[in-house]
Design a protein around this nucleic acid. Structure first.
Lengths: 205, 205
DNA sequence: GTCTATACTGGGATAGAC
DNA sequence: GTCTATCCCAGTATAGAC
């Protein structure tokens, strides 16, 4: 990661880490100052409105960087070969996207400090998932060998796939506090995807 | 709801509400005292270890009351008639279970104050979902008219159904902060369930 | 068992020198 | 632009009367 050593960026960086691990309220400005290696007064030069302004900035950056989530690639192949494999690749990439320190911390903060944020500030999470879902639906429609009747069906399929992925992300990151993807969990995802795709994969057509 | 007016229960009740709406750290003991109609000292008579002890008690009650989540009924009918309807009833009941003030608040607190809780304290959420899932899987196996090859398939189906439900719960309650179930959201769930069950519902057999 | 009063600490924020 | 020093307030917790 680029460690920008502009003091302002340094403050944001250490604050994000602290907010994610201890929570916003439990993090004192003194902790931030100490971790950033600056003094009491300096913080208020960069953020005149104090701690809340730092939080807003962090979340704002999270919103902007949701684009990075969207870099997950969907090989728009029209062949049915290995759709399961493609889905697992998508899952791995999605998981990977949430693994970067910054993304992970922004995610945790957005959920945990929800009550301090506006609807707009928190919605980026849903939006990001939804955008991937839309692209996924489109990809499904492009695969001719899938027995999908209409675009509605492709939408449903994409929604279900994303639900499977999202449940795992939330359970592991939010509740279990588990940042390593266990082989076990991944295998369970694979089986669900397999089960889901089996009936609509057709060798005819 | 039974409003037990034992002071200790009253404290827990108002604290749960405050923790859920403002967060643990942002809630002061003074707020709790005022809301509970008691004085500074009284709180420490009932909870010698202060605020953290109140939090632990609340979460403990959440763990115990997860049983209430499990009252969701699964009509173990062996007929295929209206499996979709049954699934939607299950969904409605699950949603309803999270609608009760106490369950909802325990849920929010368990997620948002995760870092103050032990693994055991937070795991009740996953456990509750998993138990419903296990019963759902069993129910699927009892329905002869479903074209499920083995118990593995029933497990996968149950997992997927629960993922669909859980995604909605998390998105609506945690991110959107939306406690009313919109007809729109519910309809989307219904369509996914329909899409999911369609290929394995068989008229033969 | 509940009250009032208060001790003590540490929080956010600012003033003003450099 | 960054520092030190400090203000003021609010937080948790306790002591001791009733």
């Amino acid at each position: 990661m680029i460690k920008n050593d502009q003091p302002k960026d340094k403050i944001i960086d250490v604050a994000r880490k602290l907010f994610a691990s201890r929570g916003f309220e439990a993090t004192t400005t003194r902790m931030i100052n100490k971790a950033a290696g600056i003094s009491e007064g300096a913080l208020y030069y960069h953020f005149p409105h104090g701690k809340q302004e730092i939080l807003d900035t962090i979340v704002q950056q999270g919103i902007e960087s949701r684009v990075s989530l969207l870099t997950v690639s969907l090989t728009n192949s029209t062949t049915v070969t290995g759709i399961e494999t493609q889905m697992m690749t998508l899952f791995d990439q999605l998981w990977q996207a949430f693994q970067s320190e910054t993304s992970y911390q922004s995610f945790i903060i957005t959920i945990r400090e929800r009550m301090l944020l506006s609807d707009e500030q928190s919605h980026w999470l849903i939006d990001a998932i939804q955008q991937i879902q839309a692209r996924l639906s489109q990809a499904f429609q492009n695969i001719e060998k899938l027995a999908l009747n209409d675009s509605q069906a492709a939408d449903n399929l994409a929604m279900i796939v994303m639900s499977i992925f999202q449940k795992v992300l939330y359970d592991e990151l939010l509740i279990k506090n588990q940042r390593r993807l266990s082989a076990d969990v991944r295998e369970r995802v694979r089986q669900q995807i397999h089960f889901l795709l089996a009936p609509i994969q057709t060798t005819t057509n």
